[in-house]
Write a protein that binds this DNA or RNA. Sequence first.
DNA 1: TCTGGGGTCCTAGGACCC
DNA 2: TCTGGGGTCCTAGGACCC
Length: 410
Amino acid sequence: MSGLERVVMHIDMDAFFASVEQQTFPFLRGKPIGVCGDPEGRTVIAAASYEAKRRGVKTAMTLPEAKKLCPEIILVSGHPAKYVDTSTRILAFYAAFTDRVEVFSIDEAFLDVTQTAHLFHGPEEIARSIKSYIKEHFGLTCSVGIAPNKLLAKLCGEMHKPDGLTTVHPSEVAALMETLPVQELCGIGPKTQEKLNRLGIRTCGELGRYPEKQLNGIFGIVGSHLKHMGQGVDENPVLPYFHEPATKSMGHSFTLDKDTRDMAEIQRHLLQLSEQVGRRLRRDSFAGRTVSLVLRYADFSTFIKQHSLKSYIDDGLRIYQVGIKLFKELYQPPRLVRLLGISVSGLVRDLKQTMAFENARAGSLFESLDAVNDRYGEFSVARARLQERTPGPRVIPPSWRPGAPTPVTR
DNA sequence: TCTGGGGTCCTAGGACCC
DNA sequence: TCTGGGGTCCTAGGACCC
């Protein structure tokens, strides 16, 4: 390779939500815990402590499954604001080492230290400083991977968890990839793994040697990308937040506590979801013109129907009107509904003054309502039909970015 | 007590316009 | 009367990530 090798670091907090809870509540330390939404509701494990992981409990596992594997697991309802606060303070520390910090999720970040590592006695020293800072100030551990690109940094960071520090030098890449199973790479999920396996490709070495034309014939333009991944090649730059691509959609969905075909209940949920989406759009000065409705039946079959408008909207009621119309077109009575979702895409920003914006005059009313809700809590002021609501905290969205307001609760 | 919630990207077919 | 092709938008569905 050229002399322009990059040095990329991936930092991943260990069992983040669970570790934060254990730090906040000392009686949880050393015990198997699972952070979830409402422990009484139909949720899944959002994060498991290492004590629970050792018993086989994994992220996205259902609560009954987790309890079966680990009957003494302590289920903790998440505290999103606390995770946001902790994450924000940790991220701020990274800026001491480079301005190239990419926030990958609330508990993961990439740092490009190519230009700055020499100022701090090398990348490993940076990693050790970060680890001891996080340990000292938050009582938390993280695992760090250092490699020539993001793909490999993320990969090697996973190799020694928790509290790991792993470096892969450019000269070691080929040997590492040779025997590495393809599904270990970020971006190769179960479906792609199965397709590759059917082609006789099990390791990255095999993937990297496979004829590109044949991969492209099966995977389209993703084929070339896959071949590169197999070779450990990844040219994607570390993108600081101010270079991040703009938000493309915003939405919320909700699994009902009990499957239903009651139209009044369905309308109520759709209105609440629409209001939440509208409020979030306005909070970030977005408006959108495509509304999507998600409908999941009791048998888990899921359908999406969308409709594009001529003008941009950010008003919950307008979103609801389109959403309920889509629902009625899509719904097959008397099937039982399990989940409802509403999202708005085709987003533009700061459209308030333009003619294309449908709701210019209602703007000041929303500003007043939003201000009240910001101050006194979500839905302090809301439409009368939303007085009957399902309470309970929600777990943080992985799409969270620093600077974003406190996550939505319901 | 079977299977959360919030996103992005890609594909593919049809409509429509030039 | 018939023959195209390219580009863009819209919609539905699927794969993947944390």
